[in-house]
Amino acid sequence: MNNQTSGDSALQIMRTVPSLTIVVPCYNEAEVFIYCVDALNKIVTDLVLRKKIEKNSRILFVDDGSKDNTWLQITEAAKKLDYVQGLKLSRNRGHQTALIAGLSVVDTDVCISIDADLQDDIKCIEQMIDKYMLGNDIVYGVRNDRSKDSFFKRNTANIFYGSMSAMGVNQIENHADYRLLSKRALAALLEFKEQNLYIRGLIPLLGFNSDKVFYTREERVAGESKYPLKKMLGLAIEGVTSLTVTPLRLICALGFLTCFFSFLAIIYILVAKFTGQVIEGWTSVIISIFFLSGVQLLSLGVIGEYVGKIYLETKQRPKFFIDEQTTD
């Protein structure tokens, strides 16, 4: 999706070399951190030397309450490397909250979010900067090849994106949280105050000029994935319930269908009774009870998910607390 307009040429003329913050959420990334900080530091150093970004650019690692020595490694790197800074949350709050915590302290012209596992192609950072200079406030990193994924993961991802689209959720297919945001796009994103965050679904709602860069995702350099099946399902449910009320409407439609078929069944039973064709037995009754009970429990579960979100939103609790922060 490219929303560039005729005004982009003017933006391109007005834009100067930007300062950049790369925001990297980390949770128990001790095994991969040394590779991540080295790779990102080289990228930033190179871009500064070639005057693609300003010297006051930085790499901000956000420790999401890690239980290993990730924070220790971040503080050591911050002492040795000019571009590295660290932010430590008081406890584990989840990837999306850690990301928004890092974004909330960014004060540079642009920011790029990327995971610490180095699966996203860091060479795209320069391409994102180039597209920003062309007048784009948002640049999405999009996977163009899922051949390395398992059959299950590839097909469930396709089902998820298809389902979200069918429910009216506008999100970029095969895009996770690898993206560039300009200062005004970031300011707009931070205007969203909800507790239940699904950032990749909120970004398209901003409406600013956008473009994409395409890449192939690699295997983790080290460590284990922090997104097993359970967390992926949780993120999918978060996305659906945070951005659309379609499931509630489906429940309503299901209720109408159930009532309609029940009405037909009542007519059939009455006709059978008055014509003397009643067949005694309990099978149909038991099936009906189990079916309707299942529908009711499923409906209550979906409604409960939405009610739970309303409960959390009305409390307006802080999303996170910052425990420590490295100094410049």
Results as ranks from 00 to 15, higher is better:
88 K>S: 11
78 A>R: 03
106 V>H: 09
151 F>Y: 11
181 L>M: 05
202 L>T: 12
202 L>P: 00
186 L>M: 06
184 R>W: 12
164 M>W: 03
142 V>C: 04
140 Y>P: 04
83 Y>M: 13
169 V>W: 08
163 S>C: 05
105 V>F: 03
109 D>Y: 03
111 C>G: 00
169 V>S: 07
174 N>Y: 15
173 E>A: 12
95 H>G: 07
81 L>R: 12
92 N>D: 01
130 D>Q: 14
82 D>M: 01
108 T>D: 05
148 K>G: 02
109 D>K: 08
186 L>T: 02
143 R>H: 04
111 C>L: 06
163 S>M: 10
116 A>W: 00
115 D>Q: 01
182 S>K: 09
107 D>E: 14
122 I>S: 10
123 K>C: 06
197 L>Q: 12
84 V>P: 05
179 R>Q: 09
167 M>K: 12
202 L>K: 14
195 Q>N: 11
91 R>T: 14
106 V>L: 09
178 Y>G: 02
150 S>K: 09
196 N>G: 06
194 E>Y: 05
142 V>F: 02
109 D>A: 07
160 F>Q: 08
80 K>W: 02
151 F>L: 14
111 C>F: 06
151 F>N: 12
194 E>M: 11
134 L>E: 15
103 L>K: 03
90 S>E: 12
96 Q>T: 07
193 K>Y: 06
176 A>M: 13
138 I>Q: 12
90 S>Y: 05
149 D>Q: 06
120 D>R: 00
185 A>D: 03
189 L>R: 13
148 K>L: 08
76 E>C: 10
82 D>V: 08
126 E>W: 07
78 A>S: 15
81 L>V: 15
133 M>T: 08
116 A>N: 02
167 M>A: 13
125 I>R: 02
122 I>W: 06
162 G>W: 00
109 D>M: 05
134 L>K: 15
179 R>K: 11
162 G>R: 06
94 G>L: 03
145 D>N: 15
153 K>L: 11
101 A>R: 03
123 K>P: 00
93 R>E: 13
158 N>Q: 09
90 S>M: 01
127 Q>L: 14
154 R>Q: 05
110 V>P: 01
